[in-house]
Design a binder for these strands. Structure first.
Lengths: 330, 330
DNA sequence: CCTAATCACGCAAGAATTTGCAAGCACTTG
DNA sequence: CAAGTGCTTGCAAATTCTTGCGTGATTAGG
């Protein structure tokens, strides 16, 4: 009696196979039969199994590492808006210093019976960070989408901007301006997007591994790293975030040089207000709008049990030339 | 016979194992069975343990209007951190265009059985906005703290920065620099903090009601309002947010004038990166760190049933002089 | 009227999910 | 600290769903 398909099948007088095909919109069922099955489905109150259970449904977790870098609030707005349009409510979770960890948030979200989770800039992007909590998610089969490069042994669908191309663009721009000693300020060594950017750097002609600095994603980190680069005599600095770039600009000035007169600086993200900075920052824009939408689309598809390939959707970044880069001094 | 699992299992006709899995939200239980178990739980009068009910809470909602203005993410970090230190987890809720409203979030938070709510920049600050959802909160006696000036018929404790003093400081600074025609760009007319700033303005000697503009809190709003003021020949503009100020700077430049050469501009908030703008923005800092902590302290006190006076805790803002203000041209 | 093409459908293999058993863990009690 | 109680969990069995393939029916063409 609990054989749901069988029950419906009997009621309509068809085989389970046919009911299954109707349920999955498969071809090979006549219109008349389809109707009949659909009606019986309604009559018997059969509901397709779905992730959307109970009243706790329609909640989606959005896990971000911080809010200092304006790219994350911006991303939160895009994702929140897109989710709202699809009838979902987003719960924003941010790691805080000495506070709640990513794993804690995962517990919380599981407990709140969320329908899905979007991670951006999480531990999955760092090779040496703990990853057990992702396994927990997989175990529970909770629909999940990751934003920007993850370590590869996790089987979640991903939406990323193409770090390799982004770095190529930045380096290419500086080379076109005649820069020969180009330095790079990246995030931590185990940070996958930074690794990808590094690859692009090392593939370039002017590459010099000694001109690559790894640091925290903070203004101060950028400052410190850029100071070392300036001392090594670079004339161009490619940074892995806009915040790092602002730190780099400060470092260049602290060294008594000017941006872009003596040293050109390129950021990454194109977060808000980078056109109001001094100088307006040349940067590589992540198409966060498109990415956020794509992530939400994928997530909703997952929630509705559609099959989504667990691979990476790569978005093309865009070079935004403002005034922090200029022709190299000879 | 306190074997809850066994009893429930028997009632539903499943094994203890299955009941256990339902109770822990584990996967591998069909929706129908889950439902049945949950119902039996209710029928037998058992508390649905911790997950969907009860004290599991230690959850606090933080409701913000937007994330575009960096002051809000910054505030979220402060409050989130302070809450984490006290063992609470914060749920960040942001209104999104065409998406979830403040009232929706209140429903959600009530449903999630949060221990308390912190509102910042919400509808309570606008006289003409709907306020019914606050009544709902009061009815449920849910501990709540409001940040920055509210309409006064709501009886919640508040933590605010002193808008009157802030405006006085800004105006005083411009007067000291010799400015005689000072304009003001404020938020909507029904926005209480803006009204308080307006009061301070009207009390000043140079006050001219025709030089007060009301607008949306956006760069574009600031731009439009400031354009009108520049056309009226002001030499100083006091803005009600840093974003408005950036818009104002853009407007001054669009008019072919310079900041601070021809027109001085003062912001409000001192949000992140305002020292990286061109020119670095003179602004009045809200002590968000202290305010956030105070709000959390009050909230925690409320949650622990302490008596907290339902009045307004005023914080003194601080003038941060950078380079967007200068001596007036004679 | 026969042959071929097409389509709907069921059979049954097999994929996936659900469930109970029983071992094991955590905690309490004598 | 052993025994007991109540809950959790790994695993295999049972159940339920999906899908490739073949059958039969219906129709079109010859």
């Amino acid at each position: 009696m609990t054989r749901r398909l069988a029950e419906v099948a009997k009621k309509v007088g068809v085989s389970e196979a046919t009911v299954s095909r109707v349920l999955n919109g498969k071809p090979g069922v006549s219109e008349a039969t389809r109707e009949a099955v659909l009606t019986a489905l309604d009559v018997l109150g059969y509901e397709r199994p779905t992730q959307l259970r109970g009243d706790r449904a329609r909640l989606v977790g959005l896990v971000l590492p911080e809010l200092q870098n304006p790219i994350f609030p911006a991303f939160a707005e895009v994702v929140g808006g897109a989710l709202a349009q699809q009838g979902f409510t987003s719960l924003l979770c941010t790691r805080t210093v000495g506070g709640v960890s990513e794993a804690d948030y995962v517990d919380l979200l599981l407990q709140q019976q969320v329908s899905g989770v979007v991670f951006a800039g999480g531990f999955y992007a760092q090779a040496d960070a703990p990853h057990q909590h992702y396994e927990l998610i997989q175990e529970r089969k909770l629909p999940t989408v990751l934003v920007n490069a993850a370590v590869d042994h996790l089987g979640f669908p991903q939406v990323s901007s193409d770090d390799y191309v982004a770095a190529e663009m930045a380096i290419g721009h500086l080379r076109a301006l005649g820069h020969l000693r180009i330095g790079m300020v990246l995030g931590p060594r185990d940070h996958i997007p930074s690794r990808r950017k590094l690859e692009a750097y090392l593939a370039a002609d002017e590459a010099d591994p000694k001109l690559v600095e790894h640091t925290m994603f903070s203004l101060e980190g950028g400052h410190a790293a850029a100071t070392r680069l300036v001392n090594s005599g670079v004339t161009g600095i490619v940074c892995a975030s806009d915040i790092l770039a602002l730190g780099a600009i400060r470092a260049v000035r602290r060294a008594g040089l000017s941006v872009p007169g003596d040293v050109s600086v390129i950021g990454y993200d194109d977060s808000a207000m980078m056109n109001c900075t001094d100088p307006p920052l040349t940067t590589v824009r992540q198409p966060i709008d498109a990415m956020g939408r794509a992530a939400v689309d994928m997530l909703v598809a997952l929630i509705e049990r559609a099959v989504v390939p667990a691979d990476e959707l790569l978005f093309e970044p865009e070079l935004v030339v403002r005034a922090s880069t200029a022709r190299a001094r000879i």
